[in-house]
């Protein structure tokens, strides 16, 4: 194993982590402010990818597609919040799990209804194709570097939004005491819709960016959703900082596990068995990580509240 390969894998882990952060940030905000478990968050990821692919195919511009993904996910998010989600805030987690599980079925099948059964095409924009050189003789794909950049920018933007703006102040107030901000005359209904749409838009953005790397197809959101849940639970639910650190941790551990574990087992079990055992363990690794962290810190690394 060379240093260049190691660095490249590390960057891959960070890129996966950044993408998970975009998903997890919305989930954790929605949970922190409204106390809602949203299983349908993966659907916004899918909606973003489909909107981007459809618009990019129609106009030939990835960037218009990207804008469309934000708009579509935010719009659908706002609509769903106003028609369904709003009725769930006062319910227990059980009802929320069921209702948003139902939304997954509706969104998945609805998307297939609209776009057909076959995966869509979406490629990375011309400007971002190619690779860049890194110190140590390694090279890294420009587009993935750009994803890392977007993730960092979003993290910074969210920090400023929450720490410095009026909306952020209300979000913080909402996390601290839900009844109180209502009493202070803040329009909670609008605030909730805005927060939900913001979370949906971030998921849509993640879906669109990753859609260019992967396959744009129905059901693409659910595996990411489960990972995003792992992230926010590790990071501490409601904490943006926790989501960021949890996401990077999960991304790096998952990538490095898939890279290093098979090699480790091959070294003393032989190639065939070593690969099998290493791969099996690698696929369980982040769940083991999560169980370990929760066993030691039952409310995650940076719990905003219990």
């Amino acid at each position: 194993m060379t240093l260049a390969l190691f660095i490249e894998q590390l960057l891959n882990g960070i890129q996966l982590g950044v993408m998970l952060f975009l998903m997890a940030a919305g989930l954790t905000l929605i949970f922190g402010v409204m106390g809602l478990i949203n299983l349908a968050h993966g659907s916004f990821y899918m909606i973003g990818a489909f909107a981007c692919a459809a618009v990019a195919a129609a106009t030939g511009s990835f960037w218009l597609g990207l804008a469309a993904s934000l708009a579509a996910a935010a719009l659908v998010g706002a609509l769903v919040e106003m028609t369904v989600i709003r009725r769930l805030y006062e319910r227990d987690h059980l009802d929320q799990v069921l209702a948003t599980f139902a939304l997954i079925l509706i969104f998945s099948e609805g998307t297939r209804w609209l776009f057909g059964s076959f995966p869509l095409y979406l490629d990375i924009p011309q400007v971002l194709s190619g690779t860049i050189d890194l110190p140590g003789g390694s090279r890294y794909q420009l587009y993935r570097m750009a994803i890392i950049g977007v993730g960092v920018a979003v993290a910074g933007g969210l920090y400023l939004l929450i720490a410095r703006t009026r909306l952020g102040m209300r979000i913080r107030a909402g996390e601290a005491d839900r009844e109180m901000i209502g009493a202070l005359g803040v329009d909670i209904r609008t605030l909730y819709t805005v927060v939900f749409a913001l979370g949906a838009a971030l998921a849509g953005l993640a879906g669109a960016m990753v859609g260019a790397l992967q396959s744009v197809q129905v059901g693409m959101g659910e595996p990411v959703l489960i990972l995003a849940f792992v992230v926010i639970v590790i990071g501490g639910i409601g904490s943006i900082k926790g989501a960021l650190i949890g996401a990077i941790l999960v991304g790096v551990v998952d990538t490095m596990g898939r890279f290093l574990l098979p090699q480790f087992f091959i070294s003393f079990m032989g190639p065939s068995q070593g690969t099998a055992v290493g791969s099996a363990l690698a696929s369980m690794l982040i769940y083991i990580l999560m169980a370990l962290i929760l066993a030691v810190r039952p409310s995650g690394l940076f719990a905003a509240k219990g």
Binding site: H93, F229, V230, V233, P298, S299
Partner: peptide, 19 residues
């Protein structure tokens, strides 16, 4: 799992099942 509560409990049981 029972050391945790609420959403954490939901998610840690999910994690064990995924394992």
């Amino acid at each position: 799992s029972l050391r945790t509560t609420g959403v954490y409990f939901i998610m840690i049981t999910l994690a064990f099942a995924q394992m």
